[in-house]
Simulated scan of single mutants.
Amino acid sequence: MKLTGNTIFITGGGTGIGRGLAEALHKLGNKVIISGRRKERLEETIKANPGMSAVELNVQDPASIKAVAKQLIEEYPDLNVLFNNAGIMMADNPAGVIDEDVLVSTVTTNLFGPIRMSSALMEHLKSKEEAAIINTTSSLGFVPLAMAAVYSATKAALHSYTLSQRYVLKDTSVKVLEIAPPGVQTESNNDPSSMPLASFIEETLKVLGTDADEVIVEEAKMFRNNPGPNEGIFVTQLNNMMFEPPKR
């Protein structure tokens, strides 16, 4: 996709990967509007990036999505890129009793949110000569982490939905892209084995600026390439490194 001259709406743009991409795209000359539930994080981000805008959004709430979509179309009629980036990751135990709050909030944020947001802006995006929907999935959508089974499952589901969305929009002006990050160092992830945020943003933008449908940085390629008849081998290896599976 083109990296300049867009009007871009990014969910979850006040922190982490969302903020990093928002700032990078802002510096490239795009009009960027970020969203999130934490007003203080949004204000902090736009203060550090003059010209960037923000709107409060709860992607778990269909009414909030509908209201924000209406506001965006009215206030930013040139909007041509939707970046579904908001997501949450919490631990769960698929061998035990699932926490209902973890289940509902994770599925609602990571899967229902992007689907509802895309739906709310779809007709507007299709009216543009050149538009894009970008869905942030995860390398864990291809090689699930057992201690975050629900999160991994939502990202696998969003990958599947993205494939369908790309197919049905293939003859329109809307390009559908997927970014599948590996572990990335952010405010909530200090794991030294994860990819530094600056490196992830730099490599992501290089691929995003091409005609690629999937934006897979080098560190995520082994995850993306794993699915197949023998995919369980890598899944087992990854999870053996992470934790001892819970006993029944």
Rank of each mutant, 00 (worst) to 15 (best):
K2L: 08
K2S: 09
L3R: 00
G5N: 01
I8Q: 00
I10Y: 09
I17G: 03
G18V: 01
L21R: 02
A22Q: 01
H26G: 04
K31A: 09
K31V: 03
I33W: 04
I33C: 02
I34Y: 03
I34A: 03
I34D: 03
I34T: 00
S35A: 09
S35D: 04
E43I: 02
E43K: 03
E43R: 05
T45M: 05
P50K: 08
G51I: 00
M52E: 06
E56V: 12
E56R: 14
N58C: 10
N58Q: 11
V59N: 03
P62D: 09
P62T: 01
I65Q: 09
V68L: 11
K70G: 13
Q71M: 12
Q71V: 06
E74V: 11
P77A: 09
F83I: 01
G87L: 02
D92I: 01
V97I: 13
L103D: 05
L103C: 07
V107W: 09
N110L: 04
L111K: 01
L111M: 11
F112P: 00
G113S: 03
P114Y: 04
R116D: 06
A120Q: 01
E123W: 12
E123V: 00
H124F: 06
H124W: 04
K126A: 10
K126C: 09
E129H: 11
I133A: 08
T136A: 13
T137M: 12
T137W: 11
S138H: 02
S139A: 15
L140Q: 07
P144D: 07
L145T: 06
A146W: 13
M147T: 10
A148E: 07
A156T: 01
A157V: 02
L158T: 04
Y161F: 15
Y167W: 14
Y167E: 14
V168G: 12
V168L: 14
T172L: 11
S173T: 10
V174N: 08
V176S: 11
I179K: 12
A180R: 02
P182W: 10
G183A: 14
Q185W: 13
S193L: 12
I201P: 00
E202H: 12
L205P: 02
K206D: 07
L208W: 04
G209L: 01
G209S: 05
D213P: 02
D213F: 13
I216A: 09
K221F: 08
F223K: 04
F223E: 04
N225Y: 13
N226V: 03
N226A: 11
G228L: 10
F234I: 05
F234L: 11
L238M: 15
L238S: 11
L238R: 14
M241F: 14
M241W: 15
M242K: 15
F243I: 04
E244Q: 14
R248T: 10
